[in-house]
Each structure stands twice: as structure tokens, then as C-alpha cells.
């Protein structure tokens, strides 16, 4: 089987996982915020984390990591949501349930992200994942 085959199949699985768990988790999280129900938000966070776990399991099955696009999308979405949360917290418009829900979402995700990098790449190479060297430097090293 060609290399392209399994990657496509991996992508189909990843899309399916996020279409189901990701959007359901997001819905629960938003519902919890709208109704000031911490338990519902926590359920949403749990489902989103389950989606991440499923994604990592799929990566494990296909012996690969997150693609550059997936990492960019994930970090971008995380940054945007985090910014929204910080702006909301500074503005003082959040109920306590919303505040705890936000912390619950961002805390485990940040911790999980770091744990993933450290366990997968080690302390030193984890940093290199963000340290993109210019093409000229890479060529010179070769």
C-alpha cells in the first residue's frame, strides 16, 4: 500500500473524530456557559479531551504525529479562545461558572499539550518544535 493511502485513511478518522466529539464537546461547553452550568461545561471539556486522546490514538495506529496543519489549527484555535477568555475575565463580565469552565478548558489542554511534547520529543527537542530554522541554516548544516 502506498504511503498516501494510510494518510488519507488517518485523515478520514481524524475528521470523523473531531466532527463528532469535537463539535459535541464544544456544544456542551457553550451550553454550560450559556446556562451557567459548570457540570455541563466540564462534560464538554471532557469530551474535547477525549477527542484529543482519540486523535493521539489514531496517530499511534498510523505511527505518525500531528501534521503541521493540525498543529497550526489547534494552536491558533487555542490562542483565539484563550484571548477571548482573558478579555472576558478582564472585562469582569464572566459568571464564576464561566470562569471555572474556562480554566478547566485551558488548564488541562495546556498541561496535556506540554506533556505530549515532552513525552513524544523529550525536553530538548520539544523546544525545537517551535524553533523553525531558516532554510539557509538547514542547508548549511547538511
Amino acid at each position: 500500500m502506498s504511503q498516501k493511502g494510510p494518510n488519507v485513511e488517518r485523515s478520514i478518522l481524524v475528521f470523523s473524530v473531531w466532527a463528532v466529539l469535537g463539535f459535541f464537546g464544544l456544544g456542551c461547553f457553550l451550553e454550560g456557559l450559556a446556562r451557567d452550568l459548570f457540570v455541563l461545561s466540564a462534560l464538554g471539556v471532557g469530551v474535547i479531551i477525549a477527542a484529543f486522546v482519540a486523535h493521539i490514538v489514531i496517530n499511534g495506529i498510523f505511527a505518525t504525529g500531528f501534521t503541521a496543519g493540525e498543529a497550526a489549527l489547534g494552536i491558533g484555535a487555542y490562542g483565539l479562545l484563550g484571548l477571548g477568555f482573558i478579555v472576558g475575565a478582564i472585562g469582569g463580565e464572566m459568571a464564576m461558572a464561566d470562569y471555572y469552565s474556562g480554566l478547566l478548558l485551558f488548564g488541562p489542554l495546556a498541561a496535556g499539550f506540554l506533556a505530549y511534547l515532552l513525552t513524544r520529543h523529550g525536553m530538548r527537542t520539544a523546544f525545537s518544535q517551535f524553533h523553525i530554522k531558516p532554510a539557509g541554516v538547514q542547508e548549511a548544516r547538511k
Partner: peptide
């Protein structure tokens, strides 16, 4: 085919939802 697999999962989830 490729999109259909994702669509099938989504459709099944929608029914359960």
C-alpha cells in the same frame, strides 16, 4: 468515498443526537 466516510459518521451521530 473519502468524504462519504466522514459524512456517514456525522449522519449516524446526528441520528443519535
Amino acid at each position: 468515498g473519502y468524504l462519504g466516510a466522514v459524512q456517514a459518521v456525522l449522519a449516524a451521530t446526528a441520528i443519535a443526537g
